[in-house]
Amino acid sequence: MALAAPKETYAGRVFEVTIGTSKTAVFGGENVLPFHKFDGDTPHKPVIAFEIQDVAPEDWPDTVKEVYGDAASDPVKWALYCQNNLNAQAIALRLISTHPDRENRSADDAAKTVKAVLDSIEVPLIILGSNNVEKDATVLVAAAEAASSRNCVIGKAQEGNYKTISAAAMAQNHKLIAMSDLDINLSKQLGILITQMGFEKERMIADPMCSALGYGLEYTYSVMERIRLAALTQNDVIMQPPMLADIGMYVWKVKETQASEADLPKWGSLKERGIAWEAVTAGAMLLAGAELLIMRHPDAVRSVQKFIEEF
């Protein structure tokens, strides 16, 4: 007997988000589960942003540091290298040096870096704080102003600082990342709080918190799947922003991306292992529902792009 294809259709649809001005990137817009083009519309492929930071990546493992070499000594050079040499669709600038436990640079310094990077690149920019709740509230406000009218993504707004960061993103017409701690209800709650301030839900990007392969990946995977199912089956508009997976920062600190083959011969080549760790984490996040990825190693990005091309 021939098999009647058991297709599924849904009531809801993920919001389509466009970032950047001169060169833009578009993601979201689907009314089906990830890559389920056999069920309905998948108008855009996921977008991968290359992560750079405002100081040289001394804290990154060699496998990924070596790729950038001298280009990473300055954020403008680094951004241009990603755009011109690696064909980055977008750049994610992490203002890590503003963290009080690190260089503790000022919001003004951060704003200058943002401006310098934006003046030199054409691709969209994602501007990330140092993930210090208090400091991000000042740094990201200054960064949003410096990036005014460039349609950037500002993040991450969390429960403890969403008011100031959302207001700045709203005033300067940026998109906003809303990050919550690995829980579908917390993600929804933060979405409600931010939209109640008057921030349009169509300009939001949800970050339900990423985790690396082997380090809680299954939690992120299921939270993302549940958020996407709620968006589609229940037509829950708060759950309909596209999702971000901030992969690099979680992957490149786990043991599997750092331990040498000499120490752990059973784990095989360190270089391939690190790249595979980032690529496989990214692949799983895409299958769970992420539309925007932030990654570090160009080889991992290339493999994930080839993977996306196969759908």
Partner: peptide
């Protein structure tokens, strides 16, 4: 079955 590949796939399988 390069070791790096097995390790990544075993780990993903365990997670899922």
């Amino acid at each position: 079955i390069e070791k790096w590949k097995s390790l990544a796939l075993f780990t993903l399988r365990q997670n899922i």
